[in-house]
Amino acid sequence: MSNKSTGALVAAALAALLVAAPSCSRAPDQIRFGVWASQNNLWDEAIFRWRKALQADPGSAAAHNNLGVAYEKKGLFEDALREYEAALKIESGNTFVKSNYQNCKENIQAADKDDEKKKAPHEKK
């Protein structure tokens, strides 16, 4: 391959990286780090990172969605629903956020049914 074509390839590579560069800005980095932290069971760190991502970019559906997952993990279901709803407001067509939201709601409803079952024998007394 000639020097000319190698040069063109390098130029193309640089252009591609420059196009992708905005997504390497702070908020996505925080999101990525948060995902890594959550995969290593460091959920408090993940929450911290995703909150930072939201400070940098309040319109980040990913940060809202991921916070929703983290709040579910913590048992803070109302907060989780709020975050999923915020993510859906930003990206209403995102099937992954929709799936998380739906599953979270189902989990809460199942928990409510469990509570009713637990209460029932006590109330009979």
Partner: peptide, 30 residues
């Protein structure tokens, strides 16, 4: 050239990765 293409691919994957990550989360019950 192959090495260069690999670098480009890695760089693009790192900076513009959009695939969601499926995780199994231990979620507390009621």
């Amino acid at each position: 050239n192959s090495a260069l293409l690999a670098v480009i691919a890695l760089g693009l994957a790192f900076c513009s990765g959009r695939a969601p990550v499926k995780v199994s989360v231990e979620i507390p019950g009621s």
